[in-house]
């Protein structure tokens, strides 16, 4: 931070006295020594957080990268170094590429729908005057449902034997077979994932809308007669920071946090059901006992998400106006 402390120490001091002075904090620049009088104290406070980050994030990441280069015995008796073979296997497998394609599709559709519907509801709820609170509470309450429960409720809705949505589809002459038909299952996954995420987006959009100054809205009311124009020209640009934040969060959600929903819908069902890359990592690693291949997949996934995030910040954030 600053190079002054050493200059301030007298030149004839021995190393020991210097160290002692440093330890007791005497040489620290007094202007900056606001809260801690010993240099190690702040690190002590940081330690628990750092430990959590290292143990639960960095260590597994390093483990994943390491084991992605090995072919591991399913029963844990040994591992053989295979270099990039796991990566090559994954990227050459049509099954893996199919899952990747579905993940991309799922990601785009769920994010678009969840953001779109969340925004629509927020805009409408923002205009409600009478009973606004209970209306908002009802919309937000879905967010309190845990993803596995959401998946379970969704599964009951789509169930082949007792699901009301299956009956609804049958009424229109369509035989809905969630868990058997690939696209039927995909539809169910998308509906549940979107339903689960709407309240989250709704809360943020609503608070974003309410932070648009009233007088700015009124000025727009005088400047533009069409409500759609006002929304498009004034409200939406002012919501852009919120929308950008939600976009990043929603993409992460569809890629990772939809895992429990997929698990509930797809688990114990016949093969060839749609799933995301994360679920495939789990399936190959823990059901298929292919630790090396699964690690390689998760490293690829890590790279994809890192790339996506960089792209979002580089190209989208520039267009975002922060008040």
């Amino acid at each position: 931070m600053t190079d002054t402390p050493l200059n301030m120490v007298e030149a004839d001091q021995t190393l020991v006295t210097r160290l002692r002075a440093w330890w007791s904090g005497e040489t620290a620049n007094p202007a900056k020594r606001v809260q801690f009088d010993r240099p190690l104290t702040p690190w002590l406070f940081l330690l628990p957080q750092l430990a959590v980050v290292v143990i639960f994030f960095y260590w597994p990441s390093v483990q994943a990268v390491t084991s992605s280069f090995y072919l591991e015995d399913p029963f844990g008796f040994g591992a053989t170094f295979v270099g990039m073979e796991n990566y090559a296997d994954a990227l050459n497998s049509s099954e893996y590429l199919g899952t990747a394609a579905f993940t991309a599709f799922f990601c785009v559709v769920v994010t678009t729908l969840a953001l779109g519907i969340g925004l629509l509801m927020a805009v409408k709820a923002d205009k409600v005057i009478r009973g606004a609170e209970s209306y908002k509470t009802l919309l937000i309450s879905v967010y309190a449902i845990a993803p596995p429960v959401a998946g379970l409720i969704g599964m009951m809705f789509f169930d082949m034997h007792m699901g009301p949505l299956k009956d609804l589809a049958a009424f229109f002459g369509y035989d809905l077979k969630v868990g058997i038909n690939y696209w039927d299952t995909a539809t169910a996954l998308i509906v549940i994932a979107v339903w689960k995420q709407i309240p989250y987006n709704f809360i943020f959009f609503l608070s974003g809308l309410q932070s648009v100054p009233v007088s700015v809205r009124e000025a727009a009311l005088i400047d533009a007669q069409s409500g759609w124009r006002r929304f498009w020209d004034i409200t939406l640009p002012l919501l852009a920071p919120t929308a950008f934040f939600l976009l990043v969060i929603n993409i992460t959600y569809t890629m990772f946090d939809t895992f429990p929903i997929i698990d509930v819908i797809v688990k114990d069902k016949p093969a060839n059901n749609p799933m995301t890359l994360v679920y495939k990592v789990y399936l190959d690693g823990f059901k298929g006992n292919d630790i090396g291949g699964s690690s390689a997949q998760s490293v690829i996934l890590m790279g994809v998400v890192a790339l996506l995030t960089v792209l979002q910040f580089r190209f989208l954030e520039r267009r975002v106006h922060y008040g």
Binding site: P213, S215, V216, E218, A219, A220, I222, I234, G323
Partner: peptide, 13 residues
């Protein structure tokens, strides 16, 4: 009509 507001109400973006 045109209105001038107390806190200006300019479009910040």
């Amino acid at each position: 009509i045109a209105m001038v507001f107390q806190n200006y109400a300019l479009y910040p973006h």
